[in-house]
């Protein structure tokens, strides 16, 4: 409970709702989150896009995305509101903090690997001066033949 969770809530608003209705709806949702103790860290209006398939006989919709930091209680309320509202034709919540932490771990491991890798390359570089003695080698062979 103590730890903060980060969510991405993405939802599609019916493109036929009037402009001011949808802005009011968005404001309402933002207030809902704030009332429940969550904070919206990012709001992104992804604009009108074509849907990959029809949802309620609609071919396109306005995409909105919130990034919310909180306990999870505000998500429940937010989802309830969106379910009730007819203007929201689809919504999806994704918990992103776990995925991001895993991604960080992966990239950390890679940089660790990368930093240990240059060693063999350096050794090859240091072997260059060995070239000089090679010139002497053939002469040794000739002597043994004779």
């Amino acid at each position: 409970m103590a730890e903060k969770r980060v969510y991405e809530v993405i939802f599609i608003i019916d493109p036929d709702t009037p402009e001011d209705d949808s802005t009011r709806l968005i404001e309402n949702l933002q207030h809902t989150v704030a009332d429940q103790g969550g904070t919206i860290t990012k709001t992104e209006n992804m604009g009108r896009r074509q849907l990959a398939y029809k949802i309620g006989h609609k071919n396109d919709g306005n995409y909105m995305m919130f990034e919310i930091e909180g306990s999870g209680r505000e998500i429940a309320e937010l989802e309830r509101r969106m379910r009730v509202n007819d203007a929201v034709i689809r919504y999806m919540t994704i918990r992103v903090d776990l995925d991001r932490r895993r991604a960080e771990k992966l990239s950390a491991r890679r940089t660790r690997k990368a930093s240990s890798r240059p060693a063999p390359g350096a050794r090859r570089g240091s072997s260059a001066p060995v070239a000089a003695p090679v010139a002497a080698a053939p002469r040794v062979v000739d002597e043994s033949e004779a």
Partner: peptide, 11 residues
């Protein structure tokens, strides 16, 4: 699968 849910990709 997530992209399908929010109609970014078709099923």
């Amino acid at each position: 699968k997530r992209a399908r849910t929010i109609a970014f990709l078709p099923y």
